[in-house]
């Protein structure tokens, strides 16, 4: 299979890929966030800025839910930060996949700021089909496209512009994690697959005993196990 190595084609692919699902999923998910923000007493501008700047739903939800229950500012910011701590390893795993040499620090920070679980999962899946020099263009186009959909969704949700039947809302909330589960099911690599399976096994325990740092524990324990197990027993490690 020949790789896509043409500017127009890469931009088109990124937009088509984002509109094929992720943009819609984010649009509806962020509508939910927008409506929570409205209930919690935030302004519409604050809701849009929160999506744009935080750009990670678990942290956004922690923020709005704790604000609604009247917690202190420090506690809210801390909870949001913990809920979004996954961005640290995600950025580390993601940036080298774009294979760009000599990128400036501000540029890399901007790339890191635009990263979300959607673009992380989709780009790691689609990058092998794109020429290395065009992967950054693919990423930026894809990320901007879903970010725009997310901000529009936040505002429409805030103003309650779209009222949907309850069972349909449940189906829409469900599509977001489902989408990631499907994308990740085709992840190559023995170590990565083992890490994900171990992570799934650990998270219920971690969530039960230490809910505020459950994902940190899950990541460290699951990832370390997958990494070590693949080193010792992995014959099919394909890295």
């Amino acid at each position: 299979m020949s790789l896509i190595g043409d500017r127009t084609q890469v931009v088109r692919k990124a937009i088509v890929d984002s509109l094929s699902l992720p943009a819609f999923i984010l649009f509806f998910t962020m509508m939910g966030f927008g409506s929570l923000m409205q209930n919690a007493g935030f302004g519409a501008d604050m809701a849009a800025v929160a999506t744009l700047l935080i750009w990670g739903l678990p942290g956004q939800l922690a923020m709005v839910e704790l604000s609604a229950t009247g917690q202190g500012v420090i506690a809210i910011v801390f909870a949001c930060s913990l809920a979004n701590a996954r961005f640290m390893p995600m950025v580390v795993a993601f940036l080298p996949a774009m294979a760009r040499a000599g990128v400036s620090l501000p540029r890399q920070l901007l790339d890191a700021q635009m990263l979300s679980i959607n673009s992380w999962a989709m780009c790691l899946r689609e990058f092998p089909k794109v020429e290395p020099e065009y992967r950054h263009l693919y990423y930026v186009t894809f990320a901007s496209s879903i970010l725009a959909a997310a901000v529009i969704g936040t505002l429409l949700g805030y103003y309650g512009a779209v009222i949907l039947p309850a069972v349909l809302v449940l189906g829409l909330i469900f599509t977001s994690p489902l989408f990631f589960a499907l994308v990740l099911s085709s992840t190559p690599g023995y170590a990565e697959r083992l890490s994900m399976l171990t992570g799934c096994a650990i998270v219920p325990l971690a969530h039960h005993y230490l809910p505020s740092v459950d994902l940190l524990i899950t990541g460290l324990a699951g990832g370390s196990f997958g990494f070590v197990a693949a080193r010792f027993w992995g014959t099919a490690d394909d890295d």
């Binding site: 580390v92 679980i117 990740l184 994900m196 990832g223």
Partner: peptide, 18 residues
């Protein structure tokens, strides 16, 4: 790098599972 990648996959999978 490989280890941090494994940690990120485990975290994301755990989040989705949750």
């Amino acid at each position: 790098f490989k280890w941090v990648t494994c940690v990120s996959y485990a975290m994301v999978a755990g989040l989705i599972f949750r």
